[in-house]
Each structure stands twice: as C-alpha cells, then as structure tokens.
C-alpha cells in the first residue's frame, strides 16, 4: 500500500479530555492502581530476516544483544522477582510465549506467585510487520494456546512483540478473546477502545516513558535518575488520584532493571511507593476487569456525550 493511502490517524479511541471524565474509583478507596509489568522475553540467535526491521545490529552471532538478553533469564529474573516479592508485588508478565518451551523453570516460579501472564507474541525477534491478517491471527492464537496450556488460563492482555504492530493488531486481539491492550500510550487512565467487533475492550496504561529499556537504552538515563523518575511519576499520579483514580505501570526487563548497578534504584522507588496508603498494588488484568465491570459503561457514555457535542469534526 502506498503511503498516501494509509490512514493519517488511529480510530481506536476518541477525544476525551482528562479533566472532563467521570470519577474513577478503585477498590478500598485507593487513589492509584499500581502494576509492574516484567517483560520476560526470548530472543532468537538466528531469527528470520524481516523487511521492516532488523533484529540484530551485527552479523551472526550478535553477541552483545543476544547475550545480555540471555543474562536476563539466567541471572536477572530471580533478582527482580526477589525484589517484587519483598514489596508484595505480583508481576504482570509480558511473555514471549516461546519461553514456556525454552525456560519453563521461570514459568513455574511465576505461577507459584500467582503472577499474571499476558501475551507478548512468540519471540521478541518475530515481528508483526509483514504478516498477513491470517498470519497475525495465527501468531496470536499460538501465544494464547501456549499460555493457557502452561498456566491453566488464557491471557487477556496483549503487548505486541517488540512493539511491532499492524493496523488490526488490537482488533485481532479482541477477537481472540482479549480484553485489554498495552500497546497504546495515549493516557494515564484506562480508556474504552473501539474494536471492529464492538466488544467491550480497554486500553490499560503501560508507560513507555517508564519502561526500563526505553529509559536505559533509548534515552540512556542514569539508574538513579530512573529511580527518581518513577518516584516523581508516582507522586503526581497519586496526588491526582485523590480526585479520580489513576493507573501507574512500571514496565521492566530482567536484563535491564535487574543488573547489579541498577537494581538498588528500582528497589528504592518501590520502597517509596509501597510506603504509601491508598495504593492498589495489582495486575493489569485486575485493573481491566475492575474497570470493565465498574466504569466502562459510564466511560463510553461520557465519551459519546462529549463527542456528540461537537468536540471532534
């Protein structure tokens, strides 16, 4: 498809100003829903070529990139899990579902802790780019079946592998039984998403800015500054949560945040956050379920009303 034929914007959601929404309440009067989303990924040493994106920057074997990600599963996972255990946080795992085959020990550890598993594709070296709709549907169904077989329940959340999307990724996820997406970064509160099937479906905030890979690799931030960013984000969302409930997500990777030179800064931030009252420490799925049951209808009515008044042409 030529570029000029592509839509210039997304149709998944409508304008809905932050200051014109019905009040969100969380269980037990919490001001903020906090969730931590460890990405637990597998990267292939020899992935197939993709026309839109090159998995590794150097020729086979791409030692630097592959080996630090391998470190995450060999070393980093246990370290991060120990810190989350210490603060009573259940991870919501963004899972490369091939990890179920490669490293089932990690799956067992997470199951024991009643962590949530959501889908992050099969491998983080297999992109959505270039797939037909049927192929993407097959990839999604494979990840759902794999997670269901391994954990006993089907995932309801999706973060597309390596944040690679098609124009129908979110629609396909909803049609496969999903109820929430982490792929949209437009808001600090859950928002109803218009999927083509018309099913109730929400976007749960997953902060790209606080994602440790974005912070450490893309933005090259120092560890203590990253810890301070987390605390600052919490302070503001906690304050705003007194008026209407907010969501804060800390997306992590076991090869980033769990390294010895970074973990202290992360731990200090979690210590700070969990030292507050009125924080709902939860999972992505629980936020989505609660929102769908308690706020979704009010929200869709509010969005319809605001946009009917001529907000958007």
């Amino acid at each position: 498809m030529a570029d000029q034929d592509k839509a210039e914007g997304l149709e998944y959601y409508q304008p809905w100003p932050y200051n014109q929404r019905p009040k969100i309440t969380w269980p037990n009067g919490a001001r903020i829903a906090l969730w931590v989303a460890p990405n637990i990924e597998v990267y292939e040493l020899n992935p197939p070529a993709n026309a839109s994106r090159t998995p590794w920057p150097s020729p086979f074997p791409s030692v630097a990139g592959y080996s630090i990600r391998d470190y995450g599963n060999r070393v980093g996972h246990m370290r991060q899990m120990k810190v989350l255990d210490k603060y009573g946080i259940r991870g919501s795992i963004s899972l490369s579902s091939a990890l179920i085959d490669h490293h089932p020990e990690i799956i067992d550890l997470c199951k024991e802790r009643d962590w949530e598993f959501f889908s992050h594709g099969i491998y983080n070296t297999r992109y959505t780019y270039g797939l037909t709709e049927d192929q993407e549907r097959e990839l999604i169904q494979d990840s759902i079946d794999s997670i269901k077989n391994a954990t006993g329940s089907a995932p309801v959340g999706y973060l597309a592998p390596a944040l690679s999307h098609s124009t129908t990724t979110v629609d396909l996820w909803a049609e496969a039984g999903g109820t929430y997406t982490c792929d949209l970064f437009h808001d600090d509160q859950p928002t109803p998403i218009n999927v083509r099937s018309g099913k109730p479906f929400v976007s749960i905030p997953y902060s790209l800015e606080l994602n440790d890979t974005i912070a450490y690799v893309v933005n090259k931030i120092e560890p203590r500054r990253y810890g301070q960013m987390i605390k600052d984000a919490f302070d503001r969302l906690y304050a705003e949560g007194a008026e209407s409930g907010t969501v804060m997500c800390i997306p992590t990777h076991n090869y980033q945040v769990s390294t010895p030179h970074r973990l202290a800064a992360f731990e200090e931030a979690l210590e700070y956050i969990t030292g507050h009252s009125d924080v709902w420490v939860t999972t992505g799925r629980e936020i989505a379920d609660y929102y769908l049951q308690n706020h979704y209808e009010t929200a869709t009515a509010s969005i319809a009303s605001i946009n009917a008044e001529g907000g958007a042409a």
């Binding site: 597998v42 292939e44 040493l45 020899n46 992935p47 197939p48 993709n50 391998d70 091939a98 085959d101 490669h102 089932p104 099969i122 491998y123 297999r126 270039g130 797939l131 192929q135 097959e138 990839l139 494979d142």
Partner: peptide, 19 residues
Amino acid sequence: TPAASGPLDYPNRRYGNDH
C-alpha cells in the same frame, strides 16, 4: 540453530537454549 522457513516457523523452539 537452523533458520526458519517462514515467519511462523520456529525450528529452535524447544527446552533450553536455541543453540
């Protein structure tokens, strides 16, 4: 660590490493 024949072929999806 054989190469995949297509985007949905996973020849190294098995227990342990992919090599």
